[in-house]
Structure formats: C-alpha cells, structure tokens
Amino acid sequence: MITLRDVHKSFGSNHVLAGVNLTVPQGENMVVIGGSGSGKSILIKSILGLVKPDSGQITVGGQDVTTGDRDAFLARFGMLFQGGALFDSLPVWQNVAFRLLRGALKRPRDQARDIAIEKLRRVGLSADVADRLPAELSGGMQKRVSLARAIAAEPEIIFFDEPTTGLDPIMAGVINDLIREIVTEMGATAMTITHDMTSVRAMADRVAMLHGGVIRWTGPIADLDNSGDPHVDQFIHGRAEGPIATLR
C-alpha cells in the first residue's frame, strides 16, 4: 500500500502539490487524472524520490520512502515513462534487461537476454526486435519495449506515466489492455497517471483527481460518473465550461 500524507511541493511561487493525501491499496491500479501541468508526474516522482517533497510523508508498505536502503527500495518498482525513456545507445534487449545486467539482481548475460525476449513476447513483440536500437522502432513499439522493461524484474509496484500519449487510438487500446492484463496477472500495485479517459475506464480499479495541488476526489471507477464533484464531471466529459479554468 502506498500512502501520501499532506505532501507539499513548490517550484518558486508555483505550488504544484499543496497538501496531497492519497492511499493506493495493494494490488489495485490507482489512476490519477488531472489536466496538463496539474502535478501528476511530480506526484509519482515524489514517491520514487526523483523529486524531494517540501513537506509531508510518503510511505510504501508502511516504510517511509526517505529511510532505508535506496537500491532495495527502487528494486520494488517498475516504471513506464511518458516518452519511453529508452536508452538510445543500448539495443532493445539490453534496455529490457537493464536491471538484470547489473546491481543486486544481476544474472548471467544469456539468462538476462532470455528473460528480455520472454518479456518482449509478453508485450507482443517478436525476438527479431531484440538486437535493434530504440530509434529504429515506431512509437507504439517503443512503448511496448518500455513496458517490457518496467516488468522485467517482476516488481511489486508499477508506475505508468501517460502510457498512451502520442499513440493512435488502436495502439492506445492495445497498450491499455496490455497494462490491465499484466498488472492483474502479476498481482502488482499500480499507479497510472493520464488524462486519456479511455485509458482510465480500461485499466482503473480506483480513480483520483488531482487539481489545484490537492486530490479533489477519489473513489472506485464504478463511481466516477456519479462523483458529485463538478471538477471531475467537467474533466471526464471534456467540457470547456465549469470550475476548471480554461484558456481560449
């Protein structure tokens, strides 16, 4: 279980997180929705320690994220970055097996390659792509490789940052289904940030809306359409009129 208590983070006068309280139950996929620039990525990066909150407490499985062995802590996570964040200089299989080629989870090279190819197959890619460089792949294939890398070391917790951004609707649907299947079969706790409502409905167990630096509403996906929160209603129906200010 991931718990955030009164988490604050500001960049100058911009209060991106202004007292976030959120609980992500174990084994569920919590999808955080919110407009562009609402602080969704900062939220995930704060949990991982990539961004240091100004105040508040974040715990994972009851342990404060700022204490304990950092490598062991990070080994529990997998993350799919918005742009893929694949390492340009490494072939696809070495990207997928990155964690398995070094550090505490290091394995023999042949074994790491076999696992990488198995994970590539799991996300619908053939072994042919294993030796290609990321730049030689399409956007959809890069997302799949990034997904394969996120699950390669069988993490307990997986974060997905805008997993369908930049993909056509069909490929976005394929990625949504893949994430849903993989999270379910691994029994992992997941946190997804997106503003794509199709993704939300396809993969969420629970939804939280981040707006104005705080969680405006959170609840099961089944309650999303009857949240009673005007911010959530405006967002999920994509209306220009409502409490969320828009620029025209």
Partner: peptide, 10 residues
Amino acid sequence: EQIDALVTLS
C-alpha cells in the same frame, strides 16, 4: 527522462 529512468533502475 533517461536519467530518471537510470535512477528508477537502481
């Protein structure tokens, strides 16, 4: 974000 990815990969 490749540097962030490195960090998340310990």
